[in-house]
Design a protein around this nucleic acid. Structure first.
Lengths: 205, 205
DNA sequence: ATTAAATTGTTAATTTATAAACAAAAAGAT
DNA sequence: ATCTTTTTGTTTATAAATTAACAATTTAAT
């Protein structure tokens, strides 16, 4: 599983950008902490672990920290992504315009259903059998799986075979991958179920 | 933040259903563990914490454990959900057919843009100003925020004011809520950035 | 009937993550 | 120039989560 500190670093980055856009040049651990919903000590600890340094009494220089986080997250490159499955989620992600300003680029979509490939699209779409060719040609390392549960492991195997190293999985299954391929799962229903659990528990109090 | 053990319980449930559909009546901690990608000790520990009991040498009775997990997760009820924001993600979720068999029901969608409300839809859609009325009438406790970043906190405030207790947030901001309102965030870009970090780190080895 | 094997469930140990404490440095005030 | 205040950064302590260990129990075999 991915460490929590790097997930927070990603959040700090978004927050720093926000404050920078508001015209600030410096920020304190306290401010950042409040914004993210953690303690200032947590912010400083995280920064310390990634060697992000500030100035005593003067806080952190936003631009400076951003530069370093951008390095950490390899923001000097544009990260190409392919997506398998052009159903509901797939279509939504294709239309999503937020990838670009985070240095992400959805370069192609795939499906085994020819009907799904017919829709006009912001990105090129191909039959899933073309995955290896496109991955190789475009040198893609990340993939999104947005196919139904039953097809997910097969899609996953194809991606692995093609050389994909990181997979974002929307299908409600735990994918089996070799150790050098990392999977992150997103489950809308799962998150909602967790919310039901905690909110119903709160209710009893 | 929501405890990890309950998140795993939710995963175990999906896995148990899968094995039940395959015709199995019993399952061992080892099997479940492998499927979820954790250790058998973790499974037994989780089960123990929620008082889910098996039989020595004979493993766990799938139906029995499912009944108890269903109780934990309040699967005796159908959980109503409303959604604010009928953009890309909103549309995808409205079309999504997987809610029903997890006892979730999207009862209404909202947007401030009249154009978005015009599309024919599987569920009724209203102007966001109707949120309090619908929440009250339908007695809804869960909400999904799928609006742009700039509108997210305001949408959140409306939901809180209306009495929503759990929020699934797709906007890339940390929402400010009172302690009795729980938020779960989903960030596709954030997850992809985390994947970039770990996969690039692996590459160096 | 006894023994061996398998599996749970609890307790103990370890690791990881978070929080607290505090020294060090910088800025500003007296 | 000295003292006070503020904020970082590191160290120590606490809490949470995971892993390991092992006793208890059940089934099956001899």
């Amino acid at each position: 599983m991915i460490k929590k500190n790097i997930q927070r670093i990603i959040q700090y980055r978004m927050c720093l950008l926000k404050f920078q856009n508001l015209g600030f040049e410096k920020i304190f651990s306290y401010t950042l902490a409040q914004e993210i919903g953690v303690s200032p000590e947590q912010v400083r600890k995280d920064f310390s672990q990634f060697h992000l340094r500030g100035n005593k009494k003067a806080g952190y220089l936003i631009q400076d920290i951003l530069d370093q986080i951008n390095d950490l997250l390899h923001k000097e490159d544009i990260h190409k992504i392919i997506m398998v499955g052009l159903g509901n989620i797939g279509q939504a992600l294709i239309k999503y315009k937020g990838f670009a300003n985070r240095n992400m680029q959805l370069v192609a979509g795939f499906d085994i259903d020819p009907a799904k490939l017919k829709k006009t699209c912001r990105i090129p779409t191909f039959h899933s059998k073309e995955i290896p060719a496109v991955v190789k040609k475009e040198n893609v390392r990340l993939g999104i799986i947005a196919v139904p549960e039953a097809a997910a492991q097969e899609a996953c195997n194809t991606l692995i075979e093609a050389g994909i190293k990181g997979i974002l999985n929307f299908a409600p299954v735990m994918l089996k991958t070799p150790p050098d391929v990392v999977v992150q799962n997103i489950s809308v229903c799962g998150e909602l179920e967790a919310l039901v659990y905690v909110t119903e528990k709160d209710k009893q109090k």
